[in-house]
Design a protein around this nucleic acid. Sequence first.
DNA 1: ACCTGAACACCGTTCAAGT
DNA 2: ACCTGAACACCGTTCAAGT
Lengths: 173, 173
Amino acid sequence: MALTRDAIVDAAEAILDEYGLADLSMRRVADLLGVQAGALYYHLPNKQTLLAAVADGILGAMGQADTLQGWATEYRRLLLGRRDAAELVASTRAMGLGEVDPTAPARGLVPTERAGDVLATFEHFVLGATLHDQTQAQLGALGVVRGFDEAAAEATFQEGLRILSRGVGIFTT
Amino acid sequence: MALTRDAIVDAAEAILDEYGLADLSMRRVADLLGVQAGALYYHLPNKQTLLAAVADGILGAMGQADTLQGWATEYRRLLLGRRDAAELVASTRAMGLGEVDPTAPARGLVPTERAGDVLATFEHFVLGATLHDQTQAQLGALGVVRGFDEAAAEATFQEGLRILSRGVGIFTT
DNA sequence: ACCTGAACACCGTTCAAGT
DNA sequence: ACCTGAACACCGTTCAAGT
């Protein structure tokens, strides 16, 4: 069944969903595909590239938005929808890997020359907040930490977006 | 020279500074102390606890601030001052480890009942932005990525703080 | 061209045994 | 009480050798 790059990325996604980022190893991916670990390196240069491809798969689902808040909320929703996605995306975005730019659908929404700064600010907030909340949610699910309130975290996130949006008014109003 | 918890944390800090978080292993720390890796577990339950202690060492330097922007700027400065500190602190803060609360010195600066949300928003922005910039700076230093402009990153960060601060005005004015 | 087998140089953690 | 030695169960990556 001919090992391909796509098959490897799919296997990595399956392992991410079932075991999490910490257990997503090249050897586990190879095992799932019934192949030796070394075989993966014929199709991919290294693990980073594989992780970036998985991140692209997640970010590829970003659709058009008509407000900055809507865009940020969808970005967060996408990350929360997949195990450890906030950590994965935060690190691939920080390293500048990945082909998909999740800020692209928000480009037209900031009618100012400072658009780059505004989008960077929103993205850093989304990644920082969601990394925190997703980690807490997972610790809560394991019973390691008690009383993580998902609704409260969402409310705090929306409050943050309101603060940011009000502040952006410097430019737009 | 009696191995102590403090000596282990100091050694870990030294390795962080010289080799970075990826190369900060229990075995390396033990080597630096001239001891077997297993010996560390007599003084610390696991690596997470050690990393949390190192993070506390960094965050312990936070001083009093008299504006939210000043507090956020010092938080960032502290993180940028130590190799991989943004990644280290972002993860220990997300997991709720560490004894030191870096938001404590900013408590009195937000005279509203939504103070918790405001501080969380600022911290998530600081961690998200600084994680990004510190990663880029390190990739730039390695020549992996070209043209990371530190001054531009700082300007974008300050622009983000201005947006946030303006937005907080909802409450304070 | 594509994959195996085996190696290299590592990990975090545990634990009987020594002092 | 404190540490060693050795093991367990892993890592990412490389590369000669096979097909």
